[in-house]
Design a protein around this nucleic acid. Structure first.
Lengths: 156, 156
DNA sequence: TCTGAAATCCACTGCAT
DNA sequence: ATGCAGTGGATTTCAGA
């Protein structure tokens, strides 16, 4: 799959900040007419660079103002355990992020909940999973930045 | 602003997973006709529960496979310093998330880069900011989960 | 490849229930 | 409040450069 030119990158930058613009508006911004602009976007979607188009909701308004980072240590490191842990993460809707780490802790999770009590409930669900040796929870006091916009590399 | 009923929550759940569906399709899924469905979505957008509609890009395909968590300690805690740090975070496109913490470290950042060398470059930019006492970097080995879908609370 | 026009589809409005 | 029908504007396709 061929690489991106400057216009593709421009389109991606715009779309990852706002996908509700019309093709016409988009075409204008990148200096194209509607048809080629539309074709490029189709191609970007087919290629998978554009994974999906989603609505971002306001966690505060939804009543979910609390983010907690939980760092997890496993007491075993078999492929089976890792797999079962990954499935557990997928099944817990409060877990919005989970990364396996190279460090002291094995995983870091970000959990989104309504309040401290809800986190405690989540915590109990989490440690119910067999093989978890340690969980260190850190509450976020303030969201300084949170974006889905990736820093698109320039074509050197 | 009045609270959400079951249909609103259903709509939000669908839209935060896919915003490209037609009103007709959406209406069908929640058991409404197009007009009331459209009106509800308008209301959800006006109210701010739907913050924005964006395209999610594939970091791997874009050549950004590396996520790093950086925990930062400040050597001062004035409002001015916090403000200037927040602005720095906003200005660094590699920083996709930044939270102020209640814990040992003052901030946690997730940084998205192409490789280890690129992280080192970022690291130098970061510590150039005055007043940073300590930065602990942890590389993510694997993304287990990363979603923008919030766990929409049920109407009890 | 891009342009421009044609055709089809869908969001949006006004009216009735 | 929901549902239906029509209009305008958008997306998508097609012909030509």
């Amino acid at each position: 799959m061929s690489s991106l030119d400057a216009i593709d990158r421009q389109l991606l930058a715009i779309l990852q900040s706002d996908v509700s613009l019309s093709i016409e508006e988009l075409a204008e911004r990148v200096g194209l007419t509607k048809t080629p602009c539309w074709r490029r976007i189709q191609k970007l979607e087919k290629s998978g660079i554009i994974r999906r188009k989603v609505a971002l909701l306001d966690a505060e308004v939804l009543g979910l103002p609390v983010s907690v980072f939980a760092q997890v240590k496993a007491n075993q490191h078999s492929a089976e355990w890792a797999d079962s842990f990954a499935h557990t993460m997928a099944d817990l809707p409060e877990v919005v992020e989970c990364y396996r780490l190279a460090g002291d802790y094995d995983y870091i999770l970000r959990i989104v909940v309504s309040d401290v009590a809800a986190y405690d409930q989540f915590y109990k669900k989490l440690i119910a999973h067999a093989g978890i040796a340690d969980v260190a929870s850190t509450f976020a006091m303030e969201q300084i930045k949170s974006t889905t916009e990736l820093p698109i590399p320039t074509g050197e």
